[in-house]
Design a protein around this nucleic acid. Structure first.
Lengths: 215, 215
DNA sequence: CCGTACATCGAACACTGTTCTATCGTATAG
DNA sequence: CTATACGATAGAACAGTGTTCGATGTACGG
């Protein structure tokens, strides 16, 4: 059982979502496809369990972060840890939101964020909305990053910078009068850092929360 | 061509992502599967184009919203319009982020948000981050809602309230000492409104942005 | 020795996206 | 009028997928 999950995660990490087939997984485990179905009801459950499996690590990493002085700093740290985990596991993005609320580790992570919110002077509803918003934001950015580059870059044929460069070139070719924002953005986009971008947005969200909590 | 897209969207709207198969689509169009490949290079492009196709409507709906007095109100209105569109098209969630930056309407929507941001007193980088954050947040919440209920509710067998009730019951059964937040949340979750929840988080984000822009 | 429960396996099935080739219809050139 | 080229259609074939199912093994208590 444990081996099934770890090997499934390994396959996902190495070659992405499409590489996780029952036959490939069975091959790795040196067993038959039928055996996997004894542990797992189907592919959906396999992916859910795999996602929750890696969430265990995230949960462990956020263990001591809960002791932060400022609860909002606590939320910030947890969110960043979660983002980092998803950043180098693009496949996670789409599946861990499905876990929140059902799978054990997803629940615990939700709770961990919520316990920081409990230390804020908010109504229950405000707390509910705040935690959901933070989680939703993390998922959204993660999903954005999750779109795996179209194979060429995965094979190493094309450089990542060159890949992004195509977008930039395409944007620059647009009419500057009709697309003033895109033109201004282009320079920022070139050589931008995903993590930095994520944190910048997170801080906007948390600034709003801070305002609401009167801190 | 146009018919292919509209019929594809119709299939997606009616029965979700899994219902859109080349054979089903060909059947509706009273044609062969091979014909579809003349218009579209594969399923990826079909989904991209379908997503961009409905974004045209969103774009039209946000047409007059750009004239808002306050640019942040403008961003708010555009974001809500986009959310509404995704809310009753769960399949859209996962595919329109892939469009932003590539497909025409996705780009225009991005630009439309950005033009509001241009009216704010921010650095180019701050603008870039702000717009990306808003879009990421919308996508994240949308993806959360996008997880289609597991068929039973789609068939009408099980009531939506009863479906959510299962979650609530499961949460209530947890240890209140270990999960204080979840217990507090439970009441809020019961009979919560998705749209209201979305707007609440959006307003937190925009409050932070307002602070940054000095308004 | 049996029997029962757990566990394994892989062939078979129904379905998917995709490719390929044959064919149609129609406009334009000779 | 005929020939040719080309936009467009159609469906059979292929490789690959998740899933089912029954046959087979293994362990252990009676």
């Amino acid at each position: 059982m444990e081996a099934v999950l770890t090997e499934a995660v390994a396959l996902l990490d190495e070659s992405g979502e499409s590489a996780l087939t029952f036959r490939a997984l069975a091959g790795r485990l040196r067993t038959g496809v039928g055996s996997i179905y004894w542990y797992v009801s189907g592919k959906d459950e396999l992916l859910d369990r795999a996602a929750d499996h890696v969430l265990a690590d995230v949960l462990a990493d956020t263990e001591q972060l809960a002791a932060q002085d400022d609860p909002i700093d606590g939320i910030r740290a947890i969110a960043i840890t979660l983002f980092d985990a998803v950043a180098d596991r693009p496949w996670l993005g789409g599946y861990f939101m499905r876990d929140t609320g059902v799978q054990p580790n997803g629940l615990r992570l939700y709770e961990r964020l919520g316990q920081q919110a409990l230390r804020l002077d908010l109504t229950a509803r405000q707390r509910f909305h705040a935690v959901s918003a933070v989680l939703g934001y993390v998922v959204g950015i993660a999903a954005d990053l999750g779109q795996q580059p179209p194979q060429e870059i995965l094979d190493g044929e094309v450089d990542r910078d060159e890949y992004l460069g195509r977008f930039v070139a395409q944007w620059r070719a647009l009419d500057p009068v009709e697309f003033p924002f895109l033109h201004e953005i282009t320079d920022e986009f070139e050589g931008h850092d995903d993590a930095e971008q994520f944190v910048a947005g997170l801080d906007l969200l948390l600034a709003g929360l801070r305002l609401q909590a009167g801190r």
